[in-house]
């Protein structure tokens, strides 16, 4: 499945990456090269094979329902959360006005 310019633009839009015409052209070639190469996977007979879920046998552990048990994964640290914000505003993150 070769991809065209329009597809490149659609993917870039889905991925929220602005691209110029020149970049789109360059990417069209590169992506087709890579995707053409990975398509060899289609040759593999995977009848009856389940997609891998856990690379090492292990089961999901669940956490106790305790607030702020570990400060590293708890709340009450607004200063830390906002410390690197490009546009902190009165305890909020500021973003350009969104029209819903």
């Amino acid at each position: 499945m070769a991809i065209d310019q329009a597809t490149v633009r659609k993917i870039a839009s889905l991925a929220r990456i602005a691209i110029s015409d020149a970049e789109a052209t360059a990417m069209e070639g590169e992506l087709n090269g890579i995707l053409g190469w990975v398509e060899q996977l289609g040759e593999v007979d995977v009848t009856g094979v389940e997609p891998m879920t856990a690379v090492i046998p292990n089961t999901l552990r669940l956490r106790d329902d305790v607030v702020d048990a570990d400060p590293l994964t708890g709340g009450n640290r607004r200063d830390d959360v906002l410390a690197n914000a490009p546009e902190p505003q009165h305890g909020f993150f500021g973003v350009p006005k969104v029209i819903e």
Binding site: N76, R78, V81
Partner: peptide, 8 residues
């Protein structure tokens, strides 16, 4: 208060 109940 805004963003007080927010973890990393």
């Amino acid at each position: 208060e805004p963003n007080t109940q927010v973890s990393l």
